[in-house]
């Protein structure tokens, strides 16, 4: 009975939403023009990076804070750190992981650099770095993380702290996160580098901290 009702209301929802979408008038506000008009002053020439790091810098600042918060919540939830070390994988997989990791680091640095003028940027670079960490863990080359020590804590919080410091520094001369056009390119690259490192550690940490409560095989 519940099943029937839920499926019927889901179908009704899709039907009415689709009808509304097909009828929808053109949007009253179009932000494409303003984005393109101020691109020269934003410090980067790729519009998506300009939106992420300059026009809507708040989003990214709060996003890295949310990510850090999620990681802290996971640290609070997962069990006592055990001595679990992953079983060493097959030698072929280990060799492949050793070969792939430097390449992934090169790809990440390229993506970070390319983000200023073509698709790419801190998120993708951080994700590739995190994937390298997960790969090393699955190949048995990198043990799951225990309680984070000082260096790891600095790495995890560094991106957010750097971003917040830049934002606070800019507050002294006017508005939060309003970069002076002359410095914008350099500041965005600086923030993105910090973000890449912290994002990589946080995303890898989501995996590596979770795997510490694994039962020893």
């Amino acid at each position: 009975m519940k099943r029937f009702a839920v499926i019927c209301s889901a179908l009704l929802f899709v039907g009415s939403l689709a009808a509304a979408m097909l009828e929808l008038a053109p949007a009253a506000i179009d932000l494409r023009g303003p984005v393109a008009a101020h691109l020269a002053a934003s410090g980067v020439s790729h519009p998506v990076t300009a939106v992420l790091l300059n026009y809507r810098g708040y989003d990214t600042l709060l996003e890295i804070a949310v990510l850090l918060l999620a990681l802290l919540a996971i640290l609070a939830v997962v069990g006592e750190p055990g001595a679990a070390r992953p079983a060493p994988a097959h030698p072929v997989l280990q060799t492949l992981a050793r070969l792939a990791t430097p390449l992934m680091i090169v790809v990440a640095v390229y993506l970070l650099w390319a983000g200023a003028f073509r698709p790419g940027g801190a998120f993708q670079a951080g994700a590739v770095l995190a994937a390298a960490g997960v790969l090393l863990h699955l190949a048995g080359l990198l043990p799951g993380w225990q309680t984070p020590r000082l260096r790891l804590r600095l790495g995890l919080a560094g991106g957010f702290a750097l971003f917040l410091a830049v934002a606070g520094g800019l507050l002294a001369q006017g508005t939060l996160l309003q970069y002076p056009p002359a410095l914008a390119g350099g500041l965005i690259l600086l923030i993105e580098s910090g973000l890449t490192l912290s994002l990589a550690l946080t995303l890898a940490g989501l995996f590596l901290f979770l795997s510490r409560d694994e039962v020893a095989p």
Partner: peptide
């Protein structure tokens, strides 16, 4: 393409690894 890159690396890669890891642990 920006979202495509992120989706391939995060949505398919990391989320898949997290889910499979959780499945493996629950199974064991």
């Amino acid at each position: 393409p920006d979202i495509g890159l992120a989706e391939a690396a995060i949505g398919a890669g990391l989320t898949g690894a997290l889910l499979l890891d959780a499945y493996g642990v629950l199974q064991r």
